[in-house]
């Protein structure tokens, strides 16, 4: 196979990564934008979503599609509920102080991760995809009769991966509509702009905070549910996506929704391409160093207006 098909394959895998990553990063960015809270436990909500999906899909008999749909409908709200409880029990009581919330969410990270280890166990467990047809991708080439289609061997994807990309796109549009076209979005943006004034206008800021924290966790969990038929559920699976979504949020500019999505595409696609040519460890070293230098020299990101 020549180079071209490899790159197309890399781009497709990258698009799937970007789709899941953008859901997670938008959740992280919303929580930071509205609450000014850096949620280090965000990756664990992703993991909880995947593990719950395994549990729900496993406990429903019959067609695997039925179990998966049930998981998609139930796992994110359950995770969101967990996050709301954590917000009320911990974050609210320390007054959302930036440094103390980081320490508290690090603690929360270990609590969730280790409780999963104790109940779910150390093994990786698969969930069956609702549909999984192989799709081959044709390329164009010049032959003696002019342009013709041909199907390189090994170049293909599955219908499920395409569905993940489409689902993520739909959800992102829904989030954007929620933020810009609804009363709830207006309240959220008001709280983000000025907490004190929002309070003065009788906006229940504490309830907004709790629901935003829940929404963020729910988005991460949804990402987890979508990825679990491709990548198995495991109690440490939240670690890498957390790092990547931090990178995305920082490069996109904290609290900027379009910036986050552009950065997710950028990171997802380059992750797909780079991992074809370099070892994954080297790719991660480059990415983490890039983010560190980015924060040192351009803390406001590409699209953000204020610094971290």
């Amino acid at each position: 196979m020549e180079l071209g098909p490899y790159i197309i394959l890399g781009l497709l895998e990258g698009l799937v990564t970007a789709a899941v990553l953008s859901l997670m990063a938008v959740g992280l960015s919303l929580v930071f934008g509205v609450m000014r809270v850096v949620n280090v436990a965000h990756g664990e909500f992703f993991m909880v979503g995947a593990v719950l999906a395994w549990w729900i899909a496993g406990s429903i008999e019959g067609n695997p599609a039925l179990g998966f749909v049930a998981a998609m409908l139930l796992a994110p709200p359950l995770t969101a509920g967990l996050a709301v409880i954590a917000d009320q029990l911990i974050l609210k009581r320390i007054g959302y102080d930036p440094e103390r919330t980081i320490v508290a969410t690090i603690g929360l990270l270990y609590v969730i991760q280790q409780l999963t280890l104790m109940t779910f166990g150390p093994d990786a467990r698969p969930v069956e995809a609702p549909f999984n047809n192989r799709l081959s991708i044709p390329l164009l080439e010049w032959t003696n009769d002019g342009l013709a289609l041909y199907w390189p061997w090994g170049l293909g994807t599955t219908s499920y991966k395409i569905a993940v990309i489409l689902a993520a796109l739909t959800l992102l549009v829904a989030i954007w509509l929620l933020m810009t076209r609804t009363r709830y979005g207006l309240i959220m943006r008001a709280t983000q702009l000025d907490r004190e004034t929002a309070l003065a206008f009788a906006i229940p800021v504490n309830r907004v905070y709790a629901s935003v924290f829940g929404l963020g966790a729910g988005l991460a969990a949804l990402g987890g549910v979508l990825i679990v038929p491709i990548q198995q559920a495991h109690y440490l699976m939240g670690h890498d996506p957390l790092l990547l979504s931090f990178i995305v949020v920082i490069i996109g500019g904290l609290g900027s929704l379009p910036g986050t999505i552009v950065a997710a595409l950028l990171i997802g696609l380059s992750d797909g391409i780079i991992s074809i040519f370099f070892s994954p460890t080297l790719a991660k070293i480059i990415a983490t160093l890039a983010v560190a230098f980015f924060l040192v020299f351009r803390p406001q990101g590409f699209f953000g207006k204020r610094a971290l």
Partner: peptide, 21 residues
Amino acid sequence: LTTAYMLIAGFSLVMLTLFAP
């Protein structure tokens, strides 16, 4: 008692930030 010993670390971090900064 358990392999999940980091649970203690996580729990202590949360409790310390809440009650004994």
